[in-house]
Structure formats: C-alpha cells, structure tokens
Amino acid sequence: MKKGRAFPRVILTATLIYLLIPLLATLLYSVAKSWQNTILPESWTLGWFRDLFMDPRFTLSLWRTLWICFLSVGLSVVVMLPTIFIVVVYLPRLEKLLNVLVLIPYAAPGVVMAVGLIKLYSSGPVAIAGTMWILVGVYFVAVLPYMYQGIRNSMRTIRTIDLIEAAELLGASKLMAFRRIIVPNVLPGIRVSVLLSFSILFGEFVLANLLVGGQFETIQIYLYHRLSESGHLASAVVICYFLVILILSGILLALSGILGRQSTAASKKGSGQ
C-alpha cells in the first residue's frame, strides 16, 4: 500500500517544483542586487520595485490596463445580460445562433482576429485602430465565450422563465421584471465569469500589441518594452503583474467554491500565450 502511495507523491512533487521554479526565479531576480554565479543572489534590494513605482510610465500603464479591462467587462455585462435574457425567454429559436456567435472567438486566435480588424479600422469612416476603442470592441468579443457561459448558467439556475411567468402574472412589465427580478438574481452567479474575463484581459498581449501598440501602453506592452532594457526591472513588473492576477484568481477560487467546478479551469484555453 505504501509503495503505491509513493509514486504519485514523487510525480506531484516534481511537477510542483517544475512549475514553481520559473516563478521563484523571477521573484528572486526582482529583489536581487547582484546575481551572477551563485544559487541564490549575493545581495538583496527592493530598489527595483522603488524604481518601478517611481516610473510614471508603469503606473500609467497599470491604470490603463485596469481601466480597459473594467470598461470591456462592464460593457459585456451591460450588453449581454439583456441580450441573453431576451433570447432565452422570448426568442428561444435564436439560441442556437447566439451559441455559435459567442463560441467563434474561442476558436479564433488573437492574431487572426487582429488581421481583419486592422484592415477594417485603419482607414475609412471608423478609423479607430490605434485607439483604445478598438480594444474595447475586440475585448468584448474575446470574453464572450466565458461571459455567455456564466450568464446562461446563472439564468438556468434561477429558472428565469418560471420567474418571468410569475412576474407577468402579477402584473409586472417586461422591463420591470428584468430589472427588479432577473438582474439582482443573476448577478451573484456571474461573478466567477466576470473575474475570469478580467484576468484574461489583464494578461492580454497579442491584440493590444498588434492593434494599438505603443499608442496605448498596457501593462503587457510596457513589460515587453522593459525586457530589453533591464532584466531586474522587468522581473519587478512581472511580480506586480502576477500579484494582481493572484489576487484576482484568489477571489475567483473562493467564489467558485475552491475547484467545486473544475470547468472554469478546464474550459479556460490558455489565454495570453
């Protein structure tokens, strides 16, 4: 029996070491003053973090990223809640179509999305390439699969159609039923998909780089520019970035009942690669 237990433990320990080494190295590098040819750095400093927070480019890019994520995810909630509600309750025949539309971004890598968008929006009546607005639009599309799944599941759990029937029987108008009954009941159920979408967008690089580039420097773009300049500073950026992601996924895990639903992890296609 004991022998049977040892093998899995060895595998898992090796896996954890393998997964954590790059992270640890980055962390150590960000607090190392000099690190040449020893296992651990020879001397330590928090100077890189100080330099980082003194750099207005960094703080600006961080705020920009938070702002654009907030804007895109907010837009997604505001637009998708009524849309999915109307389709589920009043236009069930269109649900198949909606399903296909929201799954397309899941199959299309960022590069492919960018190709069509650059062509469309570089010139002509809506020349928004190079501004943050093109990012808001494409980010809305990019998080559709996750937002749709979350909102749809939440609506299923609260039995939307029954609720609406009851509300209408009691004389509520459609708008009132939606605002007073559906929205407050659905919102708690979509917290997980909101946070997941937020953290996916927070680490997004491809679209930001190809569509906007240096004109609207997000945290990932800032990091990319710093890579070639100072390794220590770049690793401090990575650590800050990762802290934000950790806080987000910490909240995410707590909300989803600690892996009660592995589906969030499993359905998450590697996003930022």
């Binding site: 896996t15 190295a25 980055t26 390794g231 996924s249 600690i258 992890a265 930022g272 690669q273």
Partner: peptide, 24 residues
C-alpha cells in the same frame, strides 16, 4: 494544492513566462 498551483501557473504564460526562461 496541486490543482491550485497548476491553475495559478496557467496564468503564467506569454511574455512573463518567456522572460522567466530567459532569466533561467
């Protein structure tokens, strides 16, 4: 614990990951 760490490191991709490997 293992699932949490696997999940966490799945966020460690793209530029930060490439950078970590450059350090190593």
């Amino acid at each position: 614990r293992v699932l949490m760490i696997s999940n966490m490191t799945s966020n460690f991709a793209g530029i930060p990951l490439a950078f970590a490997y450059i350090i190593l």
